[in-house]
């Protein structure tokens, strides 16, 4: 479920980047790369888990699935937080700089 959540987030952010932010002004390209990186790493983890557990890998208990889903959503939110911090620090549209100048004036 964690892998699925991350892949879903990666696909959605890639579509948003392609349609609305191809110049990466809002850094959605960076966000999609963060999610793709995590998805690839969790995919590797899943392959190794499948090698160990075989068919049992696809029969998780409902409690495990719920916990993994909760973890996946939390990881996606954590990724959004990283993106938000990065965007505010880089300030690609100069909004924070302008706001600070307004305060000074």
């Amino acid at each position: 479920m964690t892998l699925l959540t991350a892949v879903l987030a990666a696909i959605i952010t890639t579509i948003i980047w392609y349609q609305k932010d191809s110049r990466n002004e809002m850094k959605t390209g960076t966000l999609s790369l963060i999610y793709w990186g995590a998805s690839l790493m969790w995919l590797t983890d899943a392959v190794f888990a499948y090698i160990q557990l075989q068919a049992d890998y696809f029969n998780p208990s409902p409690a495990d699935m719920l916990n993994d889903l909760f973890l996946g959503i939390s990881a996606v939110v954590f990724g959004l937080l990283l993106w938000l911090i990065l965007m505010l620090l880089k300030d690609p549209k100069g909004i924070i700089r302008q706001a600070l100048e307004n305060i000074q004036n």
């Binding site: 960076t30 790369l33 963060i34 793709w36 990186g37 995590a38 690839l40 973890l71």
Partner: peptide, 13 residues
């Protein structure tokens, strides 16, 4: 971005 982002999310996990 892929390596840092992926590592950060996995560290969170």
């Amino acid at each position: 971005n892929m390596l840092w982002g992926g590592s950060a999310l996995l560290a969170f996990e």
